[in-house]
Design a protein around this nucleic acid. Structure first.
Lengths: 147, 147
DNA sequence: TATTGTTATACTCTATAACTATA
DNA sequence: TATAGTTATAGAGTATAACAATA
């Protein structure tokens, strides 16, 4: 990469993200998942009963874009939408048995795949990398809220 | 974000990358640039005479997708395509005076913008972050080549 | 035969506005 | 009037296949 461009964190992130994304997709597509459906499925498994709007917030995806992702997972029989009695506008989301199975398989594949990509970093370095990224994200959210 | 998803580097990268991308775009669009045209312009400024194929390699963009980006920059009068005498299939790319000016403005804006986002990290932490990302990228390239 | 640039095309992800049904 | 979900749509970015001109 160009020396000047390389000084921008954004461009390094982009390249590493694209690497990880392409590799991850190779693992997920045979299971019938994409990046968005995978991450959505994981969150539903970990938070049964979550509503679409809360899910969209968690994943930083617009609710309008969430619909097709939920549709996809529902049509594959991996999750169900259930009307919330106290608020009939909302849907609560639940994973099915097969959805649970696919999710665990996908998580295992994704973990394995990421580990391989990250063997060049020590446990400590990886921790530090994760923490720095979280710091940036948190600070940015704080700044956005202050605007 | 979900606790389990948060353990994946890919998803943290995605979120931070999206943050940086959205902020950077805000700076670039008023200048008539996007992420791809910006990075392309910087590389052409830093490597005058570079050919499209080499540029695509440098930026990790397919040559087929490179065409529209080059077209855009050329139509705005910021770069020129010049046939290479020794290989009449190829185009060498050069920046114009106005292209140079826009580039420097954009780089200044982008640097300033990234610095603001990264005030939460020390100089040393940022170095370490950059190095780790480069490590991952380099190792992955090595692995790809070995396949 | 292989490579450079090009066209055409398709799919993922993201973003916005307007709608419906409920609250 | 506000909110949850939806539809429609548009624009970036990425990916592959096929082609013309040139090597």
């Amino acid at each position: 990469m160009d020396a000047r461009l390389r000084r921008f964190l954004g461009f390094r992130l982009k390249r590493v993200f694209n690497l990880i994304r392409a590799d991850l997709l190779e693992q997920l597509v045979p299971l019938g998942l994409h990046i968005t459906t995978f991450s959505t499925l994981v969150v539903i498994v970990d938070h049964p009963g979550l509503r679409q709007s809360a899910l969209a917030d968690t994943l930083d995806i617009k609710t309008s874009n969430m619909v097709a992702i939920i549709d996809d997972l529902e049509q594959r029989g991996w999750i169900t939408r259930q009307r919330v009695p106290e608020d009939r506008r909302a849907f609560a989301l639940f994973v099915t048995e097969s959805g649970q199975r696919v999710c665990e398989m996908a998580v295992a594949l994704a973990s394995e795949h990421e580990s391989k990509l990250l063997t060049c970093l020590s446990e400590q370095e990886l921790d530090s990398l994760m923490n720095m990224l979280e710091k940036i994200e948190t600070m940015s959210e704080y700044n956005d809220a202050a605007e």
